[in-house]
Nucleic acid binder design. Structure first.
Lengths: 336, 336
DNA sequence: GCAGCAAATGATATCGATATCAAGATATCG
DNA sequence: CGATATCTTGATATCGATATCATTTGCTGC
């Protein structure tokens, strides 16, 4: 067949193949292949000559061909859970923060990040990935199992307990809860409240650490269940406490927005923060530091979390053993 | 060669190929290929038989092989700019909001999203993509040109002006500015201030629409340049205005955090919002609505923006003409 | 001078899918 | 009944890279 390779688009140059380079250089294509991958099997001089030629001809490797031959894709699928409530943005912001670390680490190792939602995860490209990283609060056992059937290396972000048979990376939510408890106890608080949704595994851990550490001092917190992570929901929580005439002197909210709402509502009720009530949030979002009053909060290291997820993934791909791991968190004490 | 195909991992099942299915079904592999792609060329009965067989055997298509044969990857690279300041999170939150729409739209069309940073964009996998979507505030002409050399279809998110020879999708920042101007004029404000960094193309557009619309009423705003998008920076802007004894009765900040900081600083200075000064922010972040007082803001539709980027991309991949397009924004008037 | 070895290169098969062209089977028509 | 059209299936080549095994050349040592 003598027909010219047709470019993908009219403007684009027809792609050179290794065979073309080989002809130009007067060698065989396998030599080109070796030269371009810096193999010591080819003479250094030849190697450089071919590399220069490739550069000046604008040669681009055909990744599909290489992947086919090598039976791997050098790609990791990152599967993000959609929030149940679809009306707002598709993504939760926090799982996405992990993407930074993931992307950096994988890119450095020569891997690419294929981003999908749970819905899209059945797509062919995901099955072609060398591994999967699952992100997002709602990662439940059943979903995980479904993905596990794909038979790919898999790492999950989240709370430990639920997924015993998988590699899980997550912040030490339990430690976060304990740290806040210690902080409250240190301040002499005896009637703390926890605001959040313990149905969520990670938040359950926070609560659980909080409760355990308090129990060591004979203190038992009150749980106010709130499912939303909004400022309004935080205000509402405090208002409902007030309406029930509950007395409390400390409040631990499982998100900064909840905490901020709580602070606002407390102010409206004429209660001073932190004089009357100590408040601690979670996540230490950028706004927390410049909130008035500056909000105390538990900080998770998303960047490091993402890196760690990626490193576990790479280890599994290389058939090395990988253990679940928990990342320390920091209680940042500010004005509240 | 009679050696068994070795599975990627010990636990994983060896992958079936079309040839294996063909043998099982007693047909040729091309028939399997046709059956699985619902080709009308094969007898309906045969087709269903093969599809059932594939399902029950857990057959998975080898995407690399298909991509190689078809000379396309069904993948779109999304290239996110890193913030110059690397110390915090890698990503700006806002470009990421576009990912929702992009991902939904592309997934629905059978494409995957390959996420990279500018640094990682030279990786082989990006070159294998069928197209590129560039996101991020700092998308400058030189960077764009560099990517353009890859010869792939490309769509850029951002301000129009700068990139005449590319398909650009973005919010109508100019309209946003005009809308705020009209709002201020309607309230009888005559001494407005703009806070932001007009060195950024999108913000320049906001300022420019703002200035133009005000000029029609003989009003000329004061520009306070602030590069950061933080609450502290917004407070600082107002404080510096106060220190210079500038009188103003309206403030348009190019981000919600700046606007919130401004409101706080105004309160501290004893000036009432909105009685003494009207304030409008930009982006309408979730917090804006529950801010005290609820913040007026200009809302961009990120979801739709992402969808549109993706649709343009798909059109270009199909060799259809694609035009730059500008999305309307909405001024949400609340208490400020 | 020749066995033996290392260095450099190449011929061929292969990864798993699909396009092309050919061909057998069946149906339709005059 | 033979010719033509239609339906269904298959043999083969191909996409572009790399692994394997073979081959050539030059060199060392005895």
């Amino acid at each position: 067949m003598s027909r010219k390779r047709k470019p993908a688009r009219p403007g684009a140059p027809a792609n050179l193949t290794m065979a073309d380079l080989a002809k130009l250089a007067g060698v065989s294509k396998i030599t080109v292949s070796r030269a371009l991958s810096d193999s010591p099997l080819v003479n250094q001089e030849t190697r450089e000559r071919i590399q220069d030629l490739a550069r000046e001809q604008g040669y681009k490797l055909n990744v599909s061909a290489r992947n086919l031959r090598l039976r791997r894709s050098h790609t990791v699928a990152v599967i993000v859970e959609m929030k149940p409530s679809n009306d707002r943005t598709m993504f939760d912001p926090y799982p996405l923060m992990l993407l930074g670390g993931i992307s950096q680490e994988l890119t450095a190792a020569g891997y690419s990040v294929l981003l999908t939602t749970r819905q899209g995860a059945s797509a062919a490209a995901v099955q072609a990935a060398d591994g999967m990283i699952l992100l997002g609060q709602g990662v439940r056992q059943d979903a995980v199992r479904r993905f596990d059937k794909l038979g790919l290396p898999m790492v999950v972000w989240g709370a430990q307990g639920d997924h015993d048979d998988h590699v899980v990376v997550g912040s030490d939510n339990r430690q976060g809860g304990r740290a806040v408890a210690a902080h409250f106890i240190g301040l002499g608080r005896r009637n703390p409240v926890f605001v959040g949704n313990p149905g969520h595994p990670e938040i359950f851990e926070r609560l659980s650490g909080f409760v355990d550490a308090l129990a060591e001092h004979g203190v038992k917190p009150l749980l106010i269940r709130r499912d939303e992570f909004t400022l309004a929901s935080g205000m509402d929580a405090v208002q409902s406490l007030a309406a029930r005439h509950v007395s409390f002197d400390a409040l631990f909210a499982c998100s900064d927005l909840l905490a901020m709402g709580a602070v606002r509502a407390l102010e409206e009720l004429g209660r001073r923060v932190p004089r009357d009530v100590s408040v601690v949030g979670y996540d230490d979002m950028p706004l927390a530091a410049s909130f008035q009053p500056p909000l105390s909060s538990v900080r998770q290291d998303w960047q490091e979390g993402g890196s760690l997820l990626a490193r576990k993934m790479l280890a599994m791909i290389r058939d090395e053993a990988a253990q679940s791991e928990v990342l320390p968190v920091n209680l940042i004490v500010r004005a509240t």
